[in-house]
Design a protein around this nucleic acid. Structure first.
Length: 869
RNA sequence: GGGCUCGUGGUCUAGUCGGUCAUGACAUCGCCUUUACACGGCGGGGAUCCUGAGUUCGAAUCUCAGCGGGCCCA
């Protein structure tokens, strides 16, 4: 053991910076080659490179890092890769903002360059935060979705799925954001409550109510409920749409709510999703009244060129003028919004690329995966069960993976790139062969892929898909937030099944969201945002990580509270004091001394501690295997603080400072073993602190050591009971001193212990008093005062009569019951019937009364302690 | 409107496939500067476990209804 000065105060920042500089990060690398260790591949979430690694990411990464470090110590070949999910609208929006342009004002390639530049800078910033938090990322397996080395795989996956019949191109209604001018998937639609007006309009035969008068030009039918008697006579006839004059049928459908509005609803192409359902169901015509910019088309007649809002106003004015509009009522409704820019979405019918969804396969795979926590699976199942449309994967943007497709100018056929041509941008390259019709003239596909097409193959990518390595699918675990179960988890399962016919992972661990100190979701507008950097600056990475571990159970939302971080820092200081104290007694202790230590020289309280320690290792291992970080860390912290510091250390001080060489040796052995084991147990959670602890035991990093094994032979009920008695007696004496207003180290004349055979040396040391173990029975009265029934025994046996038995027992004299119990049999009369009970059916509480002596008597679990003042 | 989840001392929380003094933290009060730690130690007070009904010998725990949060969605 190296001797070095250990400062009184733990300087977290100094220690953390030291290890950040000194750690060789290659110790975290995954070995792709031959390896006897089982693989443990983590399909980590690639964050969106906003430049800000926020606290929600940080919580997610804490969980991942706990697992990665634990599994490495358990002897797994662990991969903790780091990805960056670069493509997508936010970056385009940011670039448009900072350069004051829109995407169409600069050449495509130039716009992409600007996006790449911004993204690269953001990734650098986020990497820095991750290193500061001590995450054991395997940087040799970093991936960046905008790099050709990654998007070649995205394109390959597209080509394979197209050729496998999973992808098709079709004119189909899609959610459309008129601001971003792109189609978006259902997963990208958010809903918000808005107030609007319900307009009541006379058609020629019936009255309808609509929230979308601007879509009257696209009205293709009117529907009523089949139960509605008011309109029965007109069903099947045609109606005339006011102003626009088109003739539309009146149809019946069960989905119409008779109580809503007038009970007659206008079906347009398309006002909402329900319109699409009816449109498909009844094969209605398609009138495109809105264009991609959200402006009215030629189909809107004189309203052509107006925005939706302008058109709405104009139509309402005209309806009023023509006396068609007869009422308006306010209505609360939820409007679908683009999740990126909050613009209300429209539903347009445009040619798009779709991935077919196979709900049965996904549900089956979901069942094969272990979910932590289990109930999160339901979210995926519900989502999967309610899918109505296939997944729209084309986007009309620029900064994304190009779709490797051309259309033949002559025959219109699709030309898909061959895998050997990839990566490729069809806008910059032409196909390397002619169309089947012989033409070599092509039109490139300008649409690009949904970003989820990039990120839904991460499981495949990290498992070595389409690389020089063999495929290692399934990965072992997917750690992610519950907010993206219906997107990332869903799509990943879909793609893994479509491309490899396998589930992507063995397990999925779902983390909750981080809420602000006020209990609300963190958001800039609420002003409750806290960054990981703020926490590390004011406290430390290890304190932050403890908050991550104990803030809440896995899967539940976690509130950020500064006081959690403060108490985490306090634990670091407490642990440091324990460490400092222990090390001061281990100056000349050598690891070899521990190897063949004669265990029979241990004293009872030593055995007690080692039994507790091994139980702790057992608990920690089991809890970590179930990804329960809060209970793991709380168990470790509780052991260190309450068991080790508050009791063991106090009890062995007498020996450590004393002259008995055997007793001292035993205490040192126990301290060494315990402190070393604690450094290992703490390593996954507080890697900097644990490394600092371990550095005085070895020149090797704690993070490449083996996780401690449980020594079953040291776990012993008897050892614990004996130690517990010593601890109890000591703490009763302390309580006694506290009650009497005495200082805890003030000596008592004598302490006499009756009824138990225990080791008294450590009690004497801890109480600073003479302790004597007494033979025979104490000479005072010993009065049974209460009969406590054992319900776990009585309930199941007597059922309905249990209450009566309890009453009968309590009516008896406790002394009589005690006497009967001592004889081995208790008889009570219940409802005139004699019932026999075993002694175990009751517990008799006794009080000890001092008989005339100038002493105080404490009764501790059967032991009697006499204090002579 | 649907699904999931939660409702435990002042605050936060453990316990939740039923067993009778409900865990811990923070806060609070009292005592103690004892040779690792006052960012400490010892001790005390403080909860009809959201409400109502039901099942049961027995409910924080199971069932139903209601009220109230949160999340995901229509």
């Amino acid at each position: 053991m190296t001797e070095s000065e250990i400062p009184k105060e733990y300087n977290a920042n100094e220690v953390e910076e030291k290890w950040m500089e000194n750690w060789n990060l290659s110790m975290y690398h995954f070995n792709w080659g031959e390896d006897t260790r089982p693989q443990y591949i983590i399909d980590t979430p690639p964050p969106y490179p906003t430049g800000n690694f926020h606290i929600g990411n940080a919580l997610n990464w804490c969980y991942i890092d706990f697992i990665a470090r634990y599994k490495r110590m358990q002897g797994y070949n662990v991969m903790f890769p780091q990805g960056w999910d670069c493509h997508g609208l936010p970056t385009e929006v940011k670039v448009e903002e900072t350069h004051g342009i829109t995407k169409n004002q600069v050449p495509r390639a130039e716009f992409r360059r600007m996006c790449r530049e911004l993204t690269g800078g953001n990734i650098d910033k986020m990497r820095k935060t991750m290193l500061r938090l001590g995450f054991s990322v395997d940087w040799s397996n970093e991936f960046v979705t905008m790099e050709p080395s990654y998007f070649v795989k995205t394109q390959k996956s597209f080509v394979k799925m197209y050729n496998g019949g999973h992808i098709y191109h079709e004119d189909h209604p899609v959610n459309w954001c008129p601001r971003c001018e792109t189609a978006i998937a259902f997963a990208e639609v958010e809903y918000d409550a808005r107030q609007t007006k319900l307009n009541f309009v006379h058609f020629d035969k019936v009255d309808i109510a609509t929230t979308r008068p601007e879509l009257m030009a696209a009205c293709v039918a009117v529907a009523v409920s089949p139960k509605d008697e008011r309109y029965k006579e007109y069903v099947g006839q045609t109606l005339t749409v006011p102003i626009f004059g088109q003739k539309v049928p009146l149809i019946e459908d069960e989905d119409v709510e008779p109580e809503f509005g007038t009970g007659a609803v206008m079906i347009c192409t398309f006002g909402d999703k329900q319109d699409v359902r009816w449109w498909l169901k009844y094969g209605l015509p398609l009138i495109k009244a809105i264009d991609k910019q959200g402006k009215m088309t030629k189909a809107a007649g004189k309203y052509e060129g107006m925005s939706l809002a302008e058109c709405r106003e104009a139509v309402i004015a005209d309806l009023k003028a023509g006396s068609f509009l007869y009422d308006q009522k306010p209505l609360d409704q939820n409007v679908g919004l683009c999740w990126r820019c909050s613009t209300p979405i429209e539903i347009l019918s445009e040619p798009q690329w779709f991935v077919k969804i196979n709900p049965e396969g996904i549900l089956k795979a979901a069942d094969e995966i272990n979910w932590y926590p289990e109930y999160m699976k339901v979210r995926l199942q519900n989502w999967t069960g309610t899918m109505e449309w296939d997944w729209c994967i084309s986007r009309q943007r620029i900064f994304a993976t190009p779709i490797p497709i051309w259309f033949c100018k002559k025959c219109g056929e699709v030309m898909i790139a061959e895998e050997s041509w990839l990566p490729i941008d069809p806008n910059e390259n032409t196909p390397k062969k002619a169309c089947a019709c012989g033409s070599t003239e092509f039109e490139p596909e300008t649409d690009v892929l949904d970003t989820w097409m990039d990120s839904s193959i991460t499981a495949l990518h990290v498992s070595g898909w389409e690389s020089e390595h063999e495929l290692r699918l399934p990965a072992q675990i997917r750690p992610q937030g519950h907010d993206i179960i219906r997107t990332w988890a869903f799509y990943t399962i879909l793609r893994s099944l479509a491309l490899e016919g396998k589930r992507p992972w063995d397990s999925i661990m779902v983390n909750g969201m981080v809420l602000g100190p006020d209990g609300h979701k963190m958001s800039k507008s609420l002003g409750n945002v806290i960054s990981p950097e703020e926490v590390t600056a004011q406290h430390s990475a290890d304190a932050f990580r403890q908050w991550g571990a104990v803030g809440g159970s896995t899967g539940s939302d976690v509130m950020f509270r500064w006081k959690d971080v403060v108490s985490a820092s306090r634990f670091l200081q407490k642990m440091w004091s324990i460490y400092r104290f222990s090390m001061s007694h281990l100056k000349d202790f050598k690891p070899e001394d521990a190897e063949n230590f004669p265990l029979d020289s241990l004293l009872p309280i030593d055995r007690w501690l080692l039994s507790k320690l091994n139980r702790l290792v057992d608990t920690a291992t089991k809890e970590l295997d179930g990804y329960q970080f809060d209970s793991t860390f709380k168990a470790i912290r509780g052991f260190a603080w309450e068991v080790l510091a508050d009791n063991y250390l106090e009890l062995v001080k007498g020996r450590l400072y004393g002259e008995d060489p055997e007793g001292k040796k035993a205490a040192r052995y126990v301290l060494y073993t315990t402190i070393r084991t604690l450094s290992l147990l703490l390593a996954p959670f507080i890697p900097f602190f644990a490394e600092e602890m371990y550095s005085r035991f070895s020149s090797e990093s704690v993070h490449i050591q083996a996780w401690p094994a449980v020594d079953e032979s040291l776990i012993s009920e008897e050892a614990e009971a004996a130690g517990e008695m010593i601890k109890e007696i000591t703490s009763e004496v302390r309580r006694y001193k506290s009650d009497k207003g005495m200082a805890l180290n003030s000596p008592l004349k004598k302490i006499e212990i009756y009824n138990v055979k225990i080791d008294t040396g450590d009690i004497a040391g801890a109480t600073n008093s003479e302790v004597e173990l007494m033979e025979g029975a104490p000479s005072f009265e010993y009065v049974p005062v209460e009969v406590k029934p054992n319900m776990g025994f009585l309930g199941p046996r007597f059922r309905k009569d249990a209450g009566a038995v309890v009453k009968a027992l309590q009516a008896e004299d406790p002394a009589a019951i005690e006497a009967q119990a001592a004889s081995g049999k208790i008889t009570v009369t219940v409802n005139g019937e004699a019932i026999e009970l075993e002694p175990g059916a009751v517990e008799v509480r006794k009080e000890v009364i001092s008989g005339g002596r100038e002493v105080d008597v404490l009764d501790i679990k059967g032991a009697v302690v006499v204090i002579v003042r």
